[in-house]
């Protein structure tokens, strides 16, 4: 994205475009990446409820994979995940591995 020069800015840094936070892909902050293991998922939706962003995609009442554009890798979902019979459905892996 080309950065704007000072003459192009809105006075006072006021944001006049609603929902423009969608354009800010915060996933690049991530150092650890959550990995979803579908066979251990009981669809309890704890991860969806606990995610501080909206990085758990849900369709027709079922969770799908992570939206890595916005997941900052905080690990709360992996911590809260009850898994199935002691096996976590979300595990954290170091980025870049």
């Amino acid at each position: 994205m080309k950065l704007k020069g000072w003459k192009e800015l809105k006075p006072g840094a006021v944001v006049t475009e609603p929902g423009s936070a969608l354009k800010f892909k915060t996933g690049s902050w991530r150092a650890f990446k959550p990995k979803w293991i579908e066979e251990n998922c009981i669809q309890c939706m704890f991860c969806w409820a606990y995610c501080p962003d909206m990085a758990i995609t849900v369709k027709d009442g079922k969770r799908g994979d992570f939206d890595y554009d916005y997941c900052k890798g905080c690990g709360i979902c992996a911590l809260e995940c009850p898994g199935k019979k002691g096996n976590k459905a979300i595990v954290m892996e170091e980025e870049g591995r």
Binding site: K4, W6, L9, P11, A13, V15
Partner: peptide, 25 residues
């Protein structure tokens, strides 16, 4: 009808441009 947000976080990529604009005004 025209929702706006005040006080966003402006980091190293834009803070200096806002200060330059302030000097201009």
């Amino acid at each position: 009808e025209h929702p706006v947000s005040y006080g966003p976080l402006i980091l190293t990529d834009y803070y200096m441009e806002y200060r330059r604009a302030h000097a201009e005004v």
